[in-house]
């Protein structure tokens, strides 16, 4: 019945498909779960492994220092954006660490400090402007309520930073990837059956019939507006 429409519609469809391929061609293919982001050149090659890595029991001069992520990335638990620590933070410790004072990276760091200029770090993790990821909520949930190790919680999205020097994006951070976690059934009580802070309490209001125990599961928010505000 709509036979006469067949060819024009097909052409339009093909054109749209082709043009969208063309528009996409300049971009990298959609990333997969374990795909890496671009290798980013930073003004100072900050060694995350040295700061956050595990201690080397045999030689304390070699391993990491197991500094909590939140010591430097202090804004993550307070704000939607994690921010970059102010230069003051770096200097706060390093002015007292004479042993590395003359290493090239530290000399470079102090040059910025003496000039009172901000280090022009490059973004490593960026999301499109129409996505609002909230660090604070994720830290509250995983670190404060579920009492998971900080490095594990941060690592869900940022990978194993303690093994990196300059951080590099490890996950795709695409919507499907976010949803893959939000759609999973997660326990609402911590491992071992301890009710997690207010979580189980509030959950019992929502689903009064269900007994809240170690088997009770819930999902992360999946309303569009949670991220697309």
């Amino acid at each position: 019945m709509y036979r006469f429409l067949r060819f024009p519609i097909l052409l339009v469809g093909l054109f749209l498909a082709a043009s969208s391929f063309a528009a996409n061609s300049s971009q990298p293919a959609l990333t997969t779960e374990d795909s890496l982001g671009p290798q980013v050149q930073q003004p100072i090659e900050f060694p995350h492994n040295r700061h956050a890595g595990l201690k080397d029991a045999s030689d304390p001069a070699k391993g990491g220092m197991e500094i909590n992520c939140q010591y430097c990335h202090t804004y993550a638990r307070r704000s939607a954006v994690a921010g970059i620590p102010p230069l003051q933070k770096c200097i706060g410790c390093h002015q007292n660490i004479e042993s590395v004072r003359n290493k090239p990276r530290i000399v470079e760091l102090f040059k910025y400090w003496d000039a009172k200029k901000a280090v022009p770090w490059k973004k490593v993790h960026d999301l499109p402007d129409f996505v609002r990821f909230n660090h604070e909520r994720h830290i509250k949930r995983f670190v404060e309520q579920q009492d998971r190790p900080v490095q594990e919680a941060c690592g869900y999205c940022h990978g194993d930073v303690k093994e990196m020097t300059v951080a590099r994006r490890q996950k795709s951070l695409a919507m499907g990837w976010c949803a893959s976690c939000h759609e999973k059934d997660h326990p609402v009580v911590a491992e071992g059956g301890t009710p997690i802070a207010g979580q189980a309490y509030w959950y019992s209001f929502q689903k009064p019939a269900a007994a809240v125990d170690a088997n009770t599961k819930a999902r992360g928010p999946n309303d569009c507006w949670q991220c697309h505000k």
Binding site: A118, P120, K122, K123
Partner: peptide, 14 residues
């Protein structure tokens, strides 16, 4: 609009 590795993220000095 993702600017990984391109856009500078300027932090405070103090």
């Amino acid at each position: 609009s993702v600017e990984d590795g391109r856009e500078t993220v300027v932090s405070y000095v103090e």
